[in-house]
Design a protein around this nucleic acid. Sequence first.
DNA 1: TTGTATGCGTTATCAC
DNA 2: GTGATAACGCATACAA
Lengths: 349, 349
Amino acid sequence: MPLPSSSAAVPGTPPRSASLADVAALAGVSAGTVSRALSRPDMLSEATRTRVLAAAERLGYVANGAARALAMRRTFTVGAIVPRFGRSSFPTMVQALEATLAAAGYTLLLSAPERERGHDPALLRALLERGVDAVALLGADQPPAMFAALAAHRRPFVLLWAEHSAEGPCVGFDEADAGAQLIAHLAGLGHRSIGILSGSTVDNERAQRRLRGLTAAIARHGLQLHPAAVVETETGFAQGFAAMQALRARRTPVTAVVCANDYLAAGALSALDQAGVAVPAQMSVASFNDNDFSAFLHPPLTTVRLPIQEIGEQAGRLLLASLRGDAPPGNPLLPVTLVVRASTGPAPG
Amino acid sequence: MPLPSSSAAVPGTPPRSASLADVAALAGVSAGTVSRALSRPDMLSEATRTRVLAAAERLGYVANGAARALAMRRTFTVGAIVPRFGRSSFPTMVQALEATLAAAGYTLLLSAPERERGHDPALLRALLERGVDAVALLGADQPPAMFAALAAHRRPFVLLWAEHSAEGPCVGFDEADAGAQLIAHLAGLGHRSIGILSGSTVDNERAQRRLRGLTAAIARHGLQLHPAAVVETETGFAQGFAAMQALRARRTPVTAVVCANDYLAAGALSALDQAGVAVPAQMSVASFNDNDFSAFLHPPLTTVRLPIQEIGEQAGRLLLASLRGDAPPGNPLLPVTLVVRASTGPAPG
DNA sequence: TTGTATGCGTTATCAC
DNA sequence: GTGATAACGCATACAA
């Protein structure tokens, strides 16, 4: 009698996890039949199906994805490259992406590089080696090598948090509209001169769009934007604090400040608090809300709520559609909503 | 002449991505040699090595991980199951885990279920099907089926944010010590009666440990803990707000409140602010800091800083060691540090 | 409905 | 140092 490929009872022999052949042997059928029992149950007779399933259950059979992937040429796995993942607003997006994919049987392979390596084609290569069926990338400004590799390997992809790209589908929101909503609100309150605490725009296309949207809206409303009233800084609480101090030191006549994100806003509020500047009595503050702790601040921040979670969901749906081969064309822009809170009020004087 | 397995130049034929055989053909060597050139360059002569590498480069060769996994019986992939991933303190931990693994050539397969499914063995099964070499699980209280499956498939694993388990290695911190540090600080300020805003302890072993640690420390210091001064609630800003209102409505004589996490603390501070209760003049507030926005609050919170990122790093190292087969025994407990800020002060009166 | 045979792209074990 | 060749475990086209 030839050795069975599994020999669980033999001491000293590592009990290799059960394979299709093991299940087949136990059920008294061929391997092919087991395969069908698991993936196309309706192709089998009631009797053998239950018998096979029972055998699989008994052996604790778990399919070998590598073998399956090799045979099927797909892994049911999606790769995502999302830099600076830790303390950012990205986790919400990624969670939503994962949830949407998981519901369709796909698993997320996450690549979370440091900022510097975020656009390194080697990261994509690592994902491709893992056989990802599709890829999600953060932002539209990817190096050409990325798109080339994606094309060479015929992998569907989506650009997260991006408005538009000639290279492929994007999921994002209208950055300019978001800024416009904030500016319109402040203008409606009578503010005429507005300051901006912008995130660093170097190598960050999203921050650039955000800043441009704000300045455009300010111009449209006929408001003033002193060049000295724009402070660009890395993101962070301490940075927001310092940026607000710098802004005040420049003695521009701003009565309202828009912060590019929650961290900067938190720092800015803290700086105003320490300086004894009443918000909003002496200074109004508003912010892009991409991290959802605006309501935790003091006073709670007026924000445009950015559809971060929705980006993840929508991207997941789009990827799944691409994998089915019926992706709709176009780049869906998700809505943003203004949430007015105590940090904005009428312009003083 | 037989068809080459790749036929890039033939119109209409999808240019399947290059395989080892393609590279071999181009370089005029055998497939085995190409494999060696890529994984054990020193086993080849200088000449063939460069020739092979050039061919691989020219074809944009990317290894097929499925085939490799099938042959090597490993995927260089680690799975993690981390529920309620979105707005929690877990992303920091996961990012650190991913970074540590990535530095060693491993990729993270992320499973981020909703709370309810967090302990579903099916999630682990999905990961095992993907062939993960090792697994990271959140918390020590996993169903037996989890550990059984892990054992059956001989997969090393680590329990994140857990102190101790008979089932396997844990990486975490001393919850009781963390609570004790907060209580000692408040006791030192003269507080005698302390309230607790606890996270929900149902089905949450971490919240249970946290609460027990606090009550034990309170007892050790001979302080008072009115039963009515413990409010248990789901985590969240609104919940913290309501919990603090409830606590005050009960009219217990507490002069200090410990919040189990940042969200609850933020809500609690907000409730006190709205009620016109001065912090810390009339009420001190301290918190476990697991989400790193304590400094954003008003006033900034006194906290014990929990080593979340460190858990991820340490878990990654431990997993890598297990995969090498030289994992050190024991469950390393990471240190916590007390950070005193403006939200705590002497007990009034 | 079920069994058989082949291929998926690597790695590893042999010879040479 | 290099080339054949045999697994690896599954899916699938085809035969029965």
